[in-house]
């Protein structure tokens, strides 16, 4: 069974009298260790799909099985638990706690995972080391550059060893050079066996992945593998 099994997933929104299909009958599977980009213009339903895969939302109909767990029928608390253990979020705007140190930001998922403080610290330091910020642990977000902030956010996503890392426009708020660095980091994480899903509308960002799922009007318009020649690869440092 795939890591992510999406079967006939639909999501409806009621806007006054109208019913809008954000997603219709979408089925897709993602294997463990894959590096996938989800693309689509705004309003295509890609955010809806991302929210469903991220367990922030529940589908109107269909099945969603994540890492062998049937999540489509879960209640709010169970979903929070799945998000905590299975999913690492990376946001466009970093979304760090402004008044907390990098270390505390990275520890936060472990606080909700009810892990003791020693292990928390150990694992947060390890995660910060993995993203190359081992020497910045006591800095607060406003003392860090945009790229460094996004690295802290990635460390936070990694820290609870999730099944998937779900990145929403991770380079959207970065200049192109820093963006490339962040994409290099994703590549590195991918080469270490992490499953990564990047949601983006930028072709260049998507081309770092090995597979692109294109969404249009709530349907999967294309699901293509990227041949090694077409892939953008950043020289690994």
């Amino acid at each position: 069974m795939s890591l992510i099994e999406v079967r006939n997933l639909s999501r409806l929104y009621h806007m006054g009298e109208e019913t809008v299909y954000a997603l219709r009958d979408v089925s897709v599977g993602i294997e463990k260790g894959e590096y996938v980009a989800i693309m689509g213009p705004s309003g295509s339903g890609k955010s809806t799909l991302m929210n469903l895969i991220g367990c922030l939302d529940s589908p109107t109909s269909g099945e969603f099985i994540l890492n062998g767990i049937e999540v489509s029928e879960m209640d709010d608390d169970e979903l929070a638990d799945v998000r905590n253990r299975q999913i690492g979020f990376v946001f466009q705007t970093f979304n760090l706690l402004a008044r907390s140190t990098a270390l505390h930001n990275v520890e936060l998922p472990l606080v909700y995972a009810e892990i003791d403080s020693e292990t928390r610290r150990e694992r947060a330091l390890e995660a910060l080391g993995q993203v190359g910020l081992g020497d910045r642990v006591t800095h607060k977000p406003n003392e860090l550059s945009g790229g460094q902030r996004q690295r802290v956010a990635i460390a936070r996503a990694l820290v609870n060893r999730p099944a998937i890392i779900l990145a929403d426009e991770p380079t959207g708020n970065l200049d192109s050079k820093t963006g490339v660095e962040i994409m290099a980091l994703f590549e590195e994480l991918s080469s270490r066996g992490n499953t990564i899903i990047v949601v983006t509308h930028e072709e260049e960002v998507a081309r770092h992945a090995r597979r692109i799922i294109r969404i249009r009007d709530g349907l999967i318009a294309a699901d293509e593998r990227i041949s090694p020649e077409d892939r953008i690869q950043v020289g690994q440092s």
Partner: peptide, 16 residues
């Protein structure tokens, strides 16, 4: 609100 959203996304339950 945004902080609440982030906390919820990384695993905080309503009761947290």
């Amino acid at each position: 609100t945004r902080e609440i959203g982030v906390r919820r996304a990384i695993g905080a339950k309503k009761k947290n």
